[in-house]
């Protein structure tokens, strides 16, 4: 009695160069409109942050009291020199938004880097070693997760002071529990699935198992998680700035701008509008990208493509 197997075309398993892999991923990306949009936006935002001095029409810090409180260019009283208007000190909104990208992306990127590294190490240790170590680590993780995130972050930020490094550290540490949990979950799943057992029985040592079997499977879910958490961190940073607990007001950040904008909401509404739009677009980009990454990376692990 033969068992049925789908007809396998062995020709497809030719040498996979980075070029063929890149082509494959590009095809996957273009199939998903959301993912494509997210990716394009993501590139644009990153470029804006990197090329801020080049792209922005004016110096974000330069105060120009004559042009203060100017509405956007298409409204009466506006001018195309400051297309999105100016704030109370006459600083160009567009330039400040562009520079604000830097703060947000820096916080997001480094925050996730720290959180991911800490969380991954914790989760790997807990998941791989199991037993008491696992209980202790997860106990600590759960305690941190029990405190409402916002409350925790606000309090610690207030204690440590207004400073970009502090903010990054805070986010890095407070977000690591989530990475720890996800990592541990994946490690446990891999352990249960049996191929760690077979690797061990074939004589593989711990390091080998870790690098060859566990880490490659972690990359997918962790990258997906990192994308979503970056978006969340950008939100939180803006929120902290909004309360005056993040970067000092001299640095242009979207949250800072919103704080000022709130006071003048009814008279100069554009000061509050544009930072919010910027945050929303950035969040959109990361979320779309994250969704696409999740679809691409996870099903290979769990479901078969049919």
């Amino acid at each position: 009695m033969t068992t049925a197997a789908p007809p396998v075309d062995f020709d497809q398993f030719e040498e996979q160069t980075w070029k063929t892999r890149l082509a494959y991923v590009t095809r996957l990306l273009l199939r998903d409109r959301g993912g494509t949009l997210g990716f394009i936006l993501f590139i644009l935002i990153v470029l804006t942050a990197l090329l801020a001095p080049v792209v922005s029409p004016q110096d974000p810090l330069e105060q120009n009291l004559r042009a203060a409180k100017q509405p956007p260019a298409w409204e009466e009283g506006g001018s195309w020199e400051q297309p999105l208007g100016t704030d109370t000190l006459g600083r160009d909104m567009l330039s400040r938004i562009i520079y604000g990208t830097r703060v947000s992306l820096t916080v997001g990127f480094f925050g996730v880097l720290i959180a991911g590294t800490l969380g991954m190490v914790a989760g790997l240790t807990a998941g791989y070693l199991g037993g008491r170590v696992d209980s202790v680590i997860m106990g600590v993780v759960n305690v941190f997760l029990a405190i409402p995130y916002l409350v925790f972050v606000v309090v610690v930020a207030a204690i440590l002071g207004r400073n970009l490094i502090n903010v990054i550290l805070i986010f890095g540490i407070t977000d690591s529990p989530i990475f720890a949990r996800v990592t541990r979950g994946e490690v446990l799943r891999i352990r249960e699935s049996g191929y760690v057992e077979s690797a061990t029985s074939a004589g593989a040592g711990t390091a080998r198992i870790l690098f060859d079997h566990i880490l490659p499977n972690l990359i997918g879910p962790l990258i997906t998680l990192a994308t979503f958490e970056m978006s969340a961190m950008i939100f939180y940073e803006a929120g902290l700035s909004f309360l005056g607990l993040s970067v000092p007001p001299s640095i242009p950040s979207w949250g800072n701008m919103l704080q000022v904008g709130r006071q003048y909401l009814t008279i100069y509404p554009w000061i509050a509008t544009w930072p919010g739009v910027a945050i929303a677009i950035t969040a959109l980009s990361f979320n779309l990208l994250g969704d696409w990454l999740r679809d691409v990376l996870d099903p290979r692990l769990r479901r078969s493509r049919n």
Partner: peptide, 22 residues
Amino acid sequence: GLLGQTIPNFWLALILILIFAV
């Protein structure tokens, strides 16, 4: 679902105030 994840709530609050209250 997407909007819920991309619009910061403090900004939404300001916009809601602007439109519906003011």
